[in-house]
Design a protein around this nucleic acid. Structure first.
Ligand SMILES: [Zn+2]
Ligand SMILES: [Zn+2]
Ligand SMILES: [Zn+2]
Ligand SMILES: [Zn+2]
Lengths: 142, 142
DNA sequence: AGCGTGGTTGCGAATAGTTGCATCTTTGCT
DNA sequence: AGCAAAGATGCAACTATTCGCAACCACGCT
């Protein structure tokens, strides 16, 4: 079994799930792969506006929604008024956000392992906890 | 020490935190207290439209934001495209939402006790986990 | 290469929520 | 009761996101 080439996983998943690969989706994926991993729809839009002036922001929203439904990306509200999208290829993690001072701390994904197990055991529920923002107070603002 | 009368807790907290009590806020609180506990801004608006036709929806959003900041209410996205507000007086709980079939299961608040403790211990973070919606797959849709 | 089907796009309108600002109210003080 | 200051309201404009629909294009089949 040959490993999927970097950058091709999304494309393969899209095609094999009955979706079409389009130039729009290709350039949207390029931007996501070239970003820091917390990209908003509007940021994608302004990155591609010069090359594809007609690429409509609703197309970006629809592409992001598809990536989310295919399990390729997460959609997370980091508290700044816009949803941010993160490709799984870039690795799992979570965020602690202080709602007083705004400080953001990153967390390893392992923090949710016991919770996920408890939800499966007690509620037979398979929680999708891949890129969460947890709000609260940091040490200084407690 | 006399116990706070039911329904007066919010009013007392608002006054003692330097905010004004207005007829608008009073009627918004009435609606919240008379509801099932998962009320949207638009629902409040249509409930009060007959009595207070001028009460603007932005006033409702601002009142709900204040209740949230004072810790009297939570704001939760239950996945139906609008934020829903829940008075704490009505008791703590959480929701498991299947993103395939839409089924919603309610959960006791105790499920997050270990997670909260871990976040305090390992990250010195006081997480506000009072009314969460967790998305994933239910048993039938796993 | 040509064709049909079904998925996709651009666009404009709609929905949900936020913000700036002038005006008005509540509240504490006299 | 009368006043000033701080806070709240209504409104309109604005941002973020979704949706309906007609035109369009990707992909599998021949
Ligand atoms: Zn992240
Ligand atoms: Zn802080
Ligand atoms: Zn609830
Ligand atoms: Zn289900």
């Amino acid at each position: 079994m040959r490993p999927v080439q970097p950058g091709k996983l999304a494309e393969n998943t899209i095609r094999s799930s009955g979706h079409h690969m389009t130039p729009q989706r290709l350039v949207i994926l390029e931007v996501l792969e070239g970003s820091n991993g917390h990209t908003s729809a509007e940021e994608i839009h302004s990155h591609v506006r010069s090359r594809y002036p007609k690429l409509h922001i609703s197309t970006i929203y629809r592409a992001l929604d598809m990536l989310k439904r295919l399990g390729l990306a997460t959609e997370t509200d980091l508290g700044d008024g816009k949803l941010r999208y993160h490709l799984h290829e870039k690795g799992y993690h979570h965020h602690l956000i202080c709602e007083k001072c705004g400080r953001v701390e990153d967390m390893d994904e392992s923090i949710f392992t016991p919770l996920k197990a408890a939800l499966r055991r007690k509620h037979h529920f398979h929680a999708d906890l891949r890129h969460l923002a947890i709000f609260g107070r940091c040490q200084g603002c407690a």
